[in-house]
């Protein structure tokens, strides 16, 4: 049964893109057969769409590759936020701790920061082969630092009463790259402070681990780069002077819907 009126533009679009039921489509097509005015309109829209789609296809440039490893890591942290970040203190408390440190006359290198004090935290790795390191699962990788060990690290850094939410107890050489649960391999990193925070370091570690496991980098070399200066390692591996936007921001706020 052909439609007894002219088809509107949006109806022609629905027809062209197959967005209507078979019955409606048949009725409209029957109208097109009988109505040259609608037919012309239909043809014009069809060819404009084809031209546009062709032009669009031609204009598409290759996209950068997806960063699936980074996404998986972020999902792991989102699913178990407490597994890695244990000790965090408010910014004000952090400031007080630093002020107290100054008063005690500690050398500034002792303060918790983006880079550890190399005397307290030189970095320490377990004797693992590449195969063993690459067999480490996400669960091992995101395990929490034992509380007693964390307390020892805070003592070493002369941080008396770390309150929740200002620090992340971070491995200098990450467990996923063979780093040990050892006081020599841990330091309190300010959480989310400054651009060189633990999020950025996580991204570097993911990247390095991929390279180690696909054979493009030596495990020992990666471990020593992390131990020496992870920020310098980041800059050289990502060819940038500052953290990439994708690594810098780390969403932890409640999901928006």
């Amino acid at each position: 049964m052909p439609s007894d009126r002219h088809l509107r533009d949006e109806e022609l679009m629905l027809l062209i893109d197959g967005e209507v039921s078979a019955a409606v489509s048949a009725a409209w097509l029957a109208h097109l057969r009988d109505c040259s005015s609608c037919r012309l309109h239909h043809q014009a829209l069809t060819s404009a769409l084809r031209h546009f789609l062709d032009g669009y296809q031609d204009s598409v440039t290759p996209s950068p590759p997806p960063e699936a490893a980074l996404l998986r890591r972020r999902m792991a942290v989102q699913a178990h936020p407490s597994r890695r970040s244990i000790y965090m203190v408010p910014a004000a408390a952090l400031f007080l701790l630093l002020a107290a440190g100054l008063w005690w006359g500690l050398p500034s290198r002792s303060f918790a920061g983006a880079l550890p004090d190399s005397r307290l935290t030189p970095g320490y790795a377990r004797a693992l082969s590449k195969a063993e390191v690459c067999g480490i699962t996400a669960d091992d990788d995101t395990r929490a630092v034992p509380v007693e060990l964390a307390r020892r690290v805070f003592r070493e850094y002369r941080i008396d009463r770390p309150r929740p939410r200002a620090y992340e107890m971070d491995y200098l050489i990450s467990p996923a790259l063979g780093g040990a649960d050892d006081v020599r391999n841990l330091w309190p990193q300010p959480y989310n402070e400054g651009v060189w925070n633990s999020r950025v370091k996580d991204a570097l570690e993911d990247h390095l681990r991929e390279q180690v496991c696909d054979g493009s980098l030596e495990l020992a070399r990666v471990q020593s780069e992390l131990a020496r200066d992870w920020i310098a390692a980041y800059k050289s591996h990502f060819h940038t002077g500052e953290p990439l936007a994708a690594h810098r921001r780390f969403v932890k706020d409640l999901p928006w819907e």
Partner: peptide
């Protein structure tokens, strides 16, 4: 709405058709 999508596309393609 779905109808708005269809009419928006028709309107834009009309403009592109004039260009072509």
């Amino acid at each position: 709405s779905l109808g708005t999508v269809a009419s928006s596309l028709a309107r834009s393609l009309g403009k592109l058709d004039t260009v072509n």
